[in-house]
Design a protein around this nucleic acid. Structure first.
Length: 216
DNA sequence: GCCCAGGGGGCTC
DNA sequence: GAGCCCCATGGG
């Protein structure tokens, strides 16, 4: 069922080519900045950072926290996020000499445990980093995943993050490309079904599967 | 003006 | 573990 749904999304919307960033460093910076904010706002922030030559994890590590905060205002909670970025780079330099290859050289479970302990990185952010920056086999769960798949009746409304993730990992073939594109498809669908921009389900390729057609 | 958004931490019970 | 508030911009 999960792969059938993915196939439909893929053939409707095409390969999404995610994550929308040039480098691993930008994937990680973007993953933190996009917490509870649309990618549009993140793009503004990334372009501000670029204008000030803050493009890499090394640059973030060197830069002043206040400077970073002022450049990422468009992403909301900017003071918190400046701290979160610093927390990540502090961790990377303290434990791995600032080298991502060094970090991603370890196994997924162990990296995940370490990253979750970094204050400001929760499960979704860590899994995005693992999958899109580290190429690790992990599935990212977000608010759209919960909303869409519970309304399809595939998962329960109150399933926890790890229960949903386990379900996806157990019912899809283990493949980084598919994990990455599937999450991208879900985000795209979530945007499409957003009440603000599109109050109906007309464009949804999963309409016939939906148990609560009018409630998106 | 009001509502809500791709999240996470801290606190309470 | 669930429920609630905090963080604090931008677009519909």
């Amino acid at each position: 069922m999960l792969f059938e749904i993915y196939s439909r999304l893929l053939s409707t919307f095409g390969y999404r080519n995610w994550w929308p960033a040039e480098t691993r460093d930008e994937v990680i910076i973007g993953a933190i900045l996009t917490q509870s904010v649309s990618w549009k706002n993140v793009k503004t922030a990334l372009s501000n950072l670029r204008d000030h030559d803050i493009l890499t994890i090394k640059d973030i590590n060197r830069a002043d926290k206040q400077t970073i905060a002022s450049l990422i205002k468009s992403t909301r909670f900017y003071n918190q996020k400046a701290i979160k970025l610093k927390n990540f780079t502090d961790f990377l330099f303290r434990e791995y000499e600032g080298d991502l290859d060094n970090l991603f050289d370890h196994d997924t479970i162990s990296i995940r445990e370490q990253l979750i302990r970094v204050k400001g990185l929760g499960e979704e952010t860590v899994d995005s980093i693992l999958l899109y920056a580290g190429g690790k086999k992990i599935f990212v769960i977000d608010a759209y995943t919960k909303r869409v798949f519970s309304r399809l009746g595939i998962i329960g409304e109150n399933w926890t993050y790890s229960k949903i993730q386990t379900y996806f990992l157990n019912n899809l073939k283990s493949n980084t490309e598919i994990y990455g594109d599937y999450h991208a498809q879900i985000v795209n669908l979530g945007h499409l079904l957003c009440r603000k921009t599109n109050p109906s389900c007309n464009q949804c390729p999963l309409e016939d599967l939906c148990r609560y057609r009018s409630s998106y």
